[in-house]
Each structure stands twice: as C-alpha cells, then as structure tokens.
Computed example of a mutant assay.
Amino acid sequence: MSSQTTFQSVEEERQHIKNRLAASFRIFSKFGFNDGSAGHITARDPENPHHYWVNPFMKHFSQVKASDLLLIDEDGKVLEGEGEINGAAIAIHSAIHKARPDVHAAAHAHSPYGMAWSTLGRLLDPITQDACTFYNDHSLFDDYTGVVYDDSEGDRIADSLGGNKAVILRNHGLLTVGQSVDEAAWWFVAMERACQVQMMAESTGSKPVLIDPESAAHTYEQMGLPDIGKEDFKPLYDMIIKEQPDLLD
C-alpha cells in the first residue's frame, strides 16, 4: 500500500499534480479515449482548492504537456496559462468539485465502450473481479438533453454521482472522480474495461454469472479503495513517462 507523498513546498506539490494530469491525458490518448475536442480531466490546485487545473480546449490529448495546463476558477475564468476552456468542462467539473470537497480530480472522456455501455441505461454488474471495483460505488445519470453547457445540468450530474467514485452518463459516457489525479484516471481506465468486458460477455447470448453480494463486497474492499486506485495508476504513469518524457515539459 502506498504511503502519503510529502512535498517541500506548494510549488513542488503543484508540479506533481500537473505532471500526473498531463500523463493522464497521454494515457487516455494511447488507449483511444480522445474523441475530437471532447473530454477533460480536472485537478484541484493545492494552494486554492476552489481553483482547478484543466486541459486547454481543442488540444489533442496526445499533445498535452504539463506547461499547457490551464488554471481556472469555479466560473471558468482562466487565471494562468493560455487557451480556451471547454464549456462542458466548466459546467460538469465545477459542479462536482463544489458538491464533493473530498474530490481532488475528476475525469470524463468519450471512450468507445463507455459510450456504448451508456446507451443501455444500466449499471455495471459484478461479473468479474475487476468489475467489483465499482460494486455499490457507481451510479447512473438517467437523462440526456444534449451537450452539457448549462450549470443546472452539471448540478444534476453531481447529484447523480452522489458519494460514488463514478457515474454513467446515459447516452454520453463515463465520469470518474478520486482523491488524486492518479485515482480518478485509473478508475476511468478500469471502468472503460469493465464496460468492454460486460458487453463482450453479453454478446455471447448467455447471461453472465454474477458474483454473490458478499463476495462482491469483499472484493470491492480489495480492489476499489482510494489507495488501491492510486497504486494501480503507477505502472501506467511509469510507462507513459518512459515513452513520452516530453509531457513533463
């Protein structure tokens, strides 16, 4: 289990967060989670928790560097950096960060299996060990009215998320949150894979065997807690840093 990272200064902690954020965009791109201009990951600034770091609009995930990230306030005003902000990022992420002080990062992208699964309007079932990561810890936003630019819809998404780590946005995709960038990014990767696996299993025409509630809950304790998500992100981070060290620029 990981120990708490300590920093010598707020500047060092901020750079750590920005490095993780830039790495997450590169990982999402590598896994095919980049769909045009859609998608965003936010992280609270360590000095002012009402300010967030986010990717600039219209910059491909594969091109994002730590130095490209923008600092914005709760209203989407750019405080540091150059570039525009995706209006949906402001509407969704601002509402979630306001509603959940425990959330330090939130991730949303138009990943293929997440989008496909979201059209079914269903929660994931505990059919594999990995799927138990989300057992009783994800919800469904059972509505779709178009691209989310309205603050009130962001509030409704935050309400649907509740205290969970993830929410399936019907006819839209997935959104995950965490106490760190590492955690939020890993939950997204894991949830996308869980959607893929369940769709593959159900495509056989047979009904998948569910893990019983007691075992699913026990497995959740082994797979779905914050420190575990943070640990599981580390191999991906090490991989992408070695492959694409320019992201730290």
Rank of each mutant, 00 (worst) to 15 (best):
T5E: 07
T5L: 06
T5Q: 10
T5C: 01
T6Y: 03
T6I: 12
F7L: 00
F7S: 00
Q8T: 14
Q8W: 04
Q8C: 05
Q8P: 01
S9T: 14
E11P: 05
E11H: 06
E11G: 11
E12L: 10
E13V: 06
E13P: 02
E13T: 03
R14T: 15
R14N: 03
R14I: 07
R14E: 15
R14Y: 05
Q15F: 08
Q15E: 12
Q15P: 02
H16W: 11
H16M: 03
I17Y: 00
I17T: 04
I17W: 04
I17Q: 00
I17V: 09
K18C: 13
K18N: 08
K18V: 04
N19E: 15
N19H: 14
N19G: 01
R20I: 08
R20T: 07
R20A: 13
L21K: 01
L21N: 08
L21H: 01
L21C: 01
L21R: 04
L21P: 13
L21M: 05
A22G: 10
A22L: 10
A22H: 09
S24T: 15
S24A: 15
F25K: 09
F25I: 03
F25Y: 15
R26K: 13
I27L: 15
I27H: 02
I27K: 04
I27S: 05
F28T: 09
F28S: 11
F28A: 15
F28R: 14
F28Y: 14
S29P: 04
S29Y: 13
K30Y: 09
K30L: 13
K30F: 06
F31Q: 09
F31V: 07
F31T: 09
F31I: 05
G32K: 12
F33G: 13
F33K: 07
F33C: 15
F33N: 10
N34W: 05
N34H: 12
N34A: 14
N34M: 06
N34Y: 03
N34V: 06
D35H: 08
D35Q: 09
D35K: 07
G36E: 05
G36H: 05
G36N: 08
G36D: 03
S37Y: 03
S37M: 11
S37L: 14
S37I: 14
A38H: 11
A38R: 09
A38W: 10
G39F: 02
G39C: 06
G39Y: 00
G39K: 02
H40N: 13
H40L: 00
H40V: 03
I41Q: 02
I41G: 00
I41F: 12
T42K: 02
T42D: 00
T42E: 03
T42R: 14
A43P: 04
A43R: 05
A43S: 13
A43T: 03
A43D: 02
A43W: 01
D45E: 07
D45C: 11
P46T: 08
P46F: 11
P46A: 09
P46V: 10
P46R: 10
P46I: 11
P46N: 06
P46S: 08
E47V: 08
E47Y: 03
E47I: 06
E47P: 00
E47W: 01
N48M: 06
N48R: 13
P49D: 10
P49F: 04
P49H: 08
P49W: 02
P49E: 11
